[in-house]
Design a protein around this nucleic acid. Structure first.
Length: 507
RNA sequence: CGGGGCGUAGCUCAGCCUGGCUAGAGCGCGUGCUUUGGGAGCACGAGGUCGCACGUUCGAAUCGUGUCGCCCCGACCA
């Protein structure tokens, strides 16, 4: 007799967090490694979550006046060369297309045809500032053409050596917004508006609390004047950059000749922004909410809100149980959660009830409902919430239908509160280097336990700081935009400092 | 690009050191029976060019050389 493990996922978070993460993805059937090095296959359940993320964000982009468009996957190499910092930032991780035809290699295989070498290599976009900028240069003549507010949903490639499912893959899916403005203030306003939009999405839809802040010069996007990010805390207390919004100043406008005539007839360079979030958010979602029994999806992003599991033995029972399930599904779909019908699935696959039930636990569906002959007779359902470890309980059928949407709202809130509590419990202010070092040093160096968290510290960027952070494997996440800013002294150099930064180990 | 490791069934691996019958296990998969309200049990069955090439040998998963691929640890990164 096989001993059922206490938790659905082995190892647990505290035993081995990175391995737990991999196992959650596998158990929930979100994605798997592909035949292509560094790239993953996103499976239906994982992609459905991404689609919900897209839907939520897209609505927010449209509501703030943005439109979607699509630009080429390939970028002429010379485009990338135009902005010096940008080149430096991305050149090391670009996939390059050099040929446009294959031919037999004489040994039964294929090779790029030497005669078909491209005059100018194309790179697979690592991001699209350059090609979109070049296009904008043609579109923009007059101040009357501005602003341009575009977004594109696309895949991009950054040739990463070390990859982790969803968090860092060679190819990933994202959205990149690109805007052009007549004035610096307006571009800055756009940059900040998007940062707020991302934070709102993260907290309300993902139930993931975030800190809005500005990146230090060392962490800035290549070519940007200011980079802002939202930073979240994962359950191993490491930080995850969950979205970025860049004020590009006139850097790209100058590199790409995005010029316009203003109202006085003067020729001026435009001001641009860019901003993006990626499938990395799925990784953040996993690591924010999931537990030792697998994935937990916040209701607003869940592919299914309720899964109904019929239980029966005989054909007679089957008929009445399935009819009851179908009725419940219809009733639930008439209810609304988050301004849409409740999403319901019935799983009547012919596998054992226990196994089936666990599969949905591991997939993180917010509410599981089991219906068997006893429930049909009692006009009740057996209900279990994914966000609590409590055992399920019987609930009158009608009461469940009436309360389902409220329960989903409760779960959404509970997940946010739980994540906020974890963050609060692992956030601290540190005012001297010794404490800082202790905070970021694990007890067991060989097999580091979960440690550290967010540390708010005064700092001034310096080589001394960079080296210390490198030694500790810690990073400056951002300088928070919100919160008090009493002056102090840099914990690394003792120099006067006006703002605290957030320090953490990070993904 | 530096250091380490691994390629044997769909997956995880044993066997290799010390060469020898028909190459194994667990999980998964298929069929049947018994089960079924929180991860079922028994029986039977399908499934392999032991990464590839060359060499040593009467004989190679096993030894040697080469080659390809992948994984882990460092430097860089959404």
């Amino acid at each position: 007799m096989a001993q059922a493990p206490k938790t659905a996922i082995t190892p647990t978070r505290s035993e081995n967090y990175p391995e737990w993460y991999q196992q959650v993805i596998k158990a929930a059937d979100l994605a798997e490694t592909s035949d292509v090095r560094g790239c993953m296959v996103i499976k239906p359940w994982g992609y459905a979550i991404w689609e919900n993320i897209q839907k939520k964000l897209d609505a927010r982009f449209k509501a703030t006046g943005h439109e979607n468009a699509y630009f080429p996957l390939f970028i002429p190499m010379s485009f990338l060369e135009k902005e010096a910092e940008h080149v430096e930032g991305f050149a090391k991780e670009c996939a390059v297309v050099t040929h446009h035809r294959l031919e037999p290699d004489g040994e039964g295989g294929l090779r790029p045809a030497p005669a078909a070498q491209l005059e100018e290599p194309l790179i697979v976009r690592p991001t699209s500032e350059t090609i979109i900028g070049a296009t904008f240069a043609r579109w923009v003549q007059s101040y009357r053409d501005l602003p341009i507010l575009l977004n594109q949903w696309a895949n991009v490639v950054r040739w990463e050596l070390r990859t982790r499912m969803f968090l860092r893959t060679a190819e990933f899916l994202w959205q990149e917004g690109h805007t052009v403005h007549a004035t610096s203030d307006e571009a800055m306003e756009e940059t900040r508006q998007i940062l707020d939009l991302y934070a709102d999405f993260a907290e309300n839809d993902m139930a993931m609390p975030v800190i809005k802040g500005e990146k230090t010069s060392g962490e800035r996007f290549p070519g940007a004047v200011h980079t802002y990010s939202i930073e979240a805390m994962m359950q191993d207390r490491k930080a995850l950059q969950a979205g970025t919004s860049h004020f590009l100043g006139q850097n790209f406008a100058k590199a790409q000749e995005i010029k316009f005539q203003d109202q006085e007839g003067q020729l001026a360079y435009a001001w641009t922004t860019s901003w993006g979030v990626s499938t990395r958010l799925v990784g953040g979602l996993i690591m924010t909410h999931s537990d030792d029994d697998g994935l937990i999806v916040p209701p607003r992003l869940a592919p299914a809100h309720v899964v109904i599991l019929p239980m029966y033995k005989s054909d007679d029972e089957r008929a009445s149980v399935l009819a009851t399930c179908q009725k419940l599904k219809t009733e639930l779909e008439a209810e609304r959660f988050d301004e849409e019908p409740i999403r319901v699935r019935i799983d009547d696959r012919d596998i054992r009830g226990g196994e089936k039930s666990w599969q949905w636990v591991k997939k993180g569906v917010p509410l599981r409902v089991t219906i068997g002959p006893r429930d049909v007779a009692d006009d009740a359902v057996f209900l279990a919430r994914r966000d609590s470890s409590e055992k399920g309980q019987g609930v009158p059928h009608r009461e469940f239908v009436a309360r389902a949407a409220d329960m989903l709202r409760e779960i959404q809130q509970h997940l946010f509160d739980r994540a906020a509590t974890l963050r609060a419990d692992n956030t601290t202010q540190i005012d001297n280097l010794a404490d800082f070092e202790a905070y970021f040093t694990p007890q067991d160096a060989k097999n580091p336990e979960i440690h550290g968290g967010l540390a708010y510290c005064h700092f001034v960027e310096s080589a001394t700081m960079d080296q210390k952070l490198k030694d500790l494997k810690a990073t400056v996440r951002c300088v928070p935009l919100e919160g008090d800013d009493e002056p102090g002294k840099c914990i690394f150099t003792g120099q006067p400092s006006v703002k605290r930064g957030v320090f953490a180990k990070a993904y």
